[in-house]
Design a protein around this nucleic acid. Sequence first.
DNA 1: TTGTAGGCGTTATCAT
DNA 2: ATGATAACGCCTACAA
Lengths: 339, 339
Amino acid sequence: MQSKPPTIKDIAKKLHLSVSTVSRALRNVPDINPETKRNILELAEELNYQPNKLARSLRQNQTNTIGVIVPNLDYVISTMVKGIDEAALEAGFTVIVCQSNESFGREVVNTRRMLNSLVDGFIISISSETKSNEHFKVLQEREIPMVVFDRVIPDILASSVILDNEEGGFIATEHLIEQGYRKIAILAGPKTLGISNSRFKGYQKALKKHNIKFDPELVVHCDFNQDFAFFATEELLSSKKRPDAIFTISDRMAIGAMLAIKNKGLKMPEEIGLVGFNNEPSLALFTPSISSVEQPSFEIGKMAGKIFIEQFLNTSFSDIREEVLKPKLCIRESSMRKI
Amino acid sequence: MQSKPPTIKDIAKKLHLSVSTVSRALRNVPDINPETKRNILELAEELNYQPNKLARSLRQNQTNTIGVIVPNLDYVISTMVKGIDEAALEAGFTVIVCQSNESFGREVVNTRRMLNSLVDGFIISISSETKSNEHFKVLQEREIPMVVFDRVIPDILASSVILDNEEGGFIATEHLIEQGYRKIAILAGPKTLGISNSRFKGYQKALKKHNIKFDPELVVHCDFNQDFAFFATEELLSSKKRPDAIFTISDRMAIGAMLAIKNKGLKMPEEIGLVGFNNEPSLALFTPSISSVEQPSFEIGKMAGKIFIEQFLNTSFSDIREEVLKPKLCIRESSMRKI
DNA sequence: TTGTAGGCGTTATCAT
DNA sequence: ATGATAACGCCTACAA
C-alpha cells in the first residue's frame, strides 16, 4: 500500500511536540533537551525519516548541488568529474552532470535548466563550438559561483583550473627531438580551442630551443577525431616533406595516425615516431604501445571542486584563482628509438 | 550587483494582477483573456523569468526527474544512458545519473539520497556486489516507479529491459564452431551476476547443438577485468587441454586474453580464435581486430526510458513488462579462419 | 527549552 | 476571466 514519506509534522504529532522542536533536534542545534532529542531521533530512525530536500532548498535558497557542464564524458573528462565528485562529497555537496555533446545550443539550454533553482553554481568546461559567453554573463550578473576547468572560457571573470598545455606540447616535442627525430609534424586540433593553441605553442617552443626550424607544412589543424587524423596523416606521409615523427594533441588522433602509418607499412618507432596526448589506458595495449602526455585529470577535477566550495562559502571574499597543473610524459614504444 | 531571479509575484505586481492569473498564463491553461496573457508572457520574457522548479516540484509532489543508478559508466552503459536521456527528453523529463562504482554501499546511499524528493522514480542497473534487494523493497512499498535494465535485480517486481544474453553466448560460440574451432574455452565472469550465467548457458547450448562435449576445465570464472583475464588465459594456454579458441564475456577480458595470447607467440586466428562481448569501438583497432557480440545499447536504454515514462503516467494500470533485445555478432579478424 | 507564526515560489480550490 | 487563500515541507525570528 502506498505510504507517503514521513515529515517532521508526523513526528511532532506523535510526540506531542511542535515542528520547530523536531526540526531543531534533527539539525543538531543546541538549546534542546537531550531526552527530547533522543526521542525524536529514535522515532525518526524508526519511521525512516528523510528530510525533504526540495522544501529545505526552497526555504534556504540553497541546494547544496553543483552543476557540472562538460562537452562529453571521454576518459579524461570523466576522470576529472570523479575528482569534482570527491571534493563535493567531502563538503556535503552533490554533483549533477550534463553533457553538452559539444553543442553550443545544448550548453545554453542545460545552463538555463539547471539555473532554475537546481544548483548553487557551476563548474564548466566549454564545448568546442562555444565562442560566445553570453549565457555565462547571466550567471555573473546574478553572482552565481562558477569555476571553469580544462577548456576555459575566454574573457570571463572566474577561477580556473587547467593543465599547462604549453608545457605538454613542449615535453612531447622535446622528447621526440631527443630521440633523434627531426621532421616532427603536429596534428594540432581545432583552432578555436585554447588548448590546441597552447599545445601548438609548446611544440614551437621546443623546436626553437633545439634550433630546428619551424615548417608550417608540417602543421595540420583538424578536428579531435580519429578519422580526420587518419586522413591528415595519410596526406602527410605521401607528401614530399614526409615527417619522421608525429605529435598529435589527443590520443584519438594518435590512434588514427597510427592506423595510417601501419597502412603505409612504415616501421614504428624506427622510421617514424608518435606521441599522443591524454594517456588513455588503451594506449598501452597497441603494438607498438603509444607514448602520450598524461594529465593529472583527477587532481584537476578535485581542485576545481575545492575552489568552487571555497568560493561558495566565502561569497564576500572571492578573489579569482588560476591554477595550472603540470603534465608528465609517458614514454612507450612508439617513440623509443635508441640512438 | 546581485539581483534575485524574478518570480510570478514580481510579474503580478508590475502588471497589477494576482499571482494566480500570472501562474495560469504561464502554464497555458484556458480561461484567460488573450490580451492579459500576452502581456504576462511579454513581461516574463523581458525579465527572463524562469519558474522555480523547487517550488513547483514541492507543490506538485513531482519532480519530472528520473534517477538513474548504474554500476559504472563504461562504453556500453554510457550508451544506454544516452538512450534513457533521449526517451526522457522527449517526455519532458530530466535524468540524474549516479555511479555506484560497483559498490553495494554506494548504491544504497545513492538511492536514499535521490529518494529525498529529488526524483520521481528510478531506472537501475545493479552493482556486481549487490545481492540483497532490501533497499529496493522500500521503493516498492512506496509504489515508486522503477525499471531495471542490463543487469537485473533478482526477485523484484519491476519491468525490465535486457539483452538476450543467452543468445549472445550462443551466437559467439556457434560462430567459433563454424570456423572450425573445437576446443573452445570461456572466460565467464563472476558467478553472482545473471548476465554471466546466461552467456555461459548460451555457450553450452551451442556446444550441445554441434555435438561438442562440454569440458568444465575450459571454463574460467573471473572478474570483469583485463588483468584477471590475462592470467586466466596464460593458465589456460599452458595447461594440457590447451583451447583453440576463447570466448570472453566482455571486451576488456578479450583484450587481456589477447595480450596473453600474443605473449605466448600464438597466431591469431590461425592457431587460436577469440570473440569478445560488447563491441567497444577500440576492438577494430587492434591487430588482429577482435570479433565481438554487439548489444543494441542505445535501444535498451531508450526502451527502459520509455517504459518508465509510460508506467509513471499510468500509475493505476501498471503491468510488468519484460523486454529482451537481441544481440548481433560482429565478425573481425580474430575469429575469421577460412576453412 | 519549547512553541507560534510567517514565508520560500508555486499550484489548486473556491469564490467572485 | 480573475482574485484570495491555503497548502506543499521546512526553517527561523520572535515570543513565551
